[in-house]
Nucleic acid binder design. Structure first.
Lengths: 170, 170
DNA sequence: GATTCTTCTTGAACAATGTTCATTTTCGAG
DNA sequence: CTCGAAAATGAACATTGTTCAAGAAGAATC
């Protein structure tokens, strides 16, 4: 993304882009804000009747979003601020909220665990899913072949749940 | 990293940097090559007597390396080539080899599984560990608090192994 | 040692891109 | 219509990757 391209696409001058977004970081962050909102909307649309199906649905929805908007997700997770400026709190909170969406179904599947522990488990599980997907979708690093990604991701979720003591179909 | 800084640090001219590395990509890739070699060396130094300890050791070694060289790892995984040039095969192979180091111990723990399946399981497990660590070490995204990362990573490995049918101490 | 050819080194100049700001345009208030 | 505030503009600047003609250094030959 280039400031001049944005200006041309918007049909305005370079200066106007700066009036609107402040600087390049502001431009990127505006995009990232929309990205995390779109991601969250998609994750929240996953049916929540059955917690097990929901967990699979969340992983699958994340995979779908990552497949369709690989570059947007990269911008969200890889962008560094200029001059070590702090990363905006609101985006941080939004990402954390998205990652916490695994909390509710996990809580239902693990009613006897310490809820704080489940909260961390859910973020960790989402981080793991994120890692598998982001490396799997890099064409260059065939950690997990993309065509198997969907199936393997489901397998991973099942395996991890089994390790947590959740018996399938319970 | 800037070409001019490298030239000054090396005590030579800008042009000499280009003679040596070709272009900026070449410079980055040289660094990335050393990074993956250092990472591999560290992972290979993990004792392999006990497969369970080895898996924990590999995860822990990766965490240690990521903690000490966060920016090097980011360069390795996040760098994009200019003009959509292909990513060098040799680095790709080296990263895949590093990721495959979980294969041997997993194979010992899962002797009855299809070896091809275990190969994929090991890469998936490493991808998951990578995701947990890389998001956990971003100060901005406290998916898993850094001070708990070591302990939680061990817990994750145990949980996943349990899900795969490995009973602790067997 | 002098000459010539090859190779390496240099850094000024160029290109691309984020950024600034004096100037101009726009537009509402009086 | 006039004036002043606000917004828009784009030329000019700063940074940084890149090129390449010119020069320096070295090797080979006589």
């Amino acid at each position: 993304m280039k400031v001049r391209d944005v200006a041309e696409a918007a049909g305005c001058s370079i200066g106007s882009v700066y009036n609107e977004f402040g600087d390049f970081d502001g431009l990127i962050l505006t995009v990232n804000r929309e990205t995390v909102q779109a991601l969250t909307a998609r994750l929240k649309a996953v049916p929540s009747d059955d917690p097990l199906r929901q967990l699979h649905g969340l992983a699958d929805a994340y995979l779908g979003f990552a497949t369709e908007h690989a570059n947007l997700l990269r911008s969200l997770f890889e962008h560094r601020m200029e001059d070590d400026r702090p990363f905006p709190e609101d985006i941080l909170a939004m990402v954390m909220d998205a990652f916490a969406l695994m909390h509710a179904p996990l809580l239902r599947l693990l009613p006897d665990r310490d809820p704080d522990d489940v909260a961390l488990l859910s973020r960790m599980m989402f981080s793991a899913v994120h890692g598998i997907i982001s490396l799997g979708l890099e064409e260059r690093m065939v950690a997990v072949p993309p065509e198997q990604l969907r199936e393997r991701l489901a397998q991973f979720v099942d395996t991890h749940l089994a390790g947590l003591g959740v018996t399938r179909g319970a």
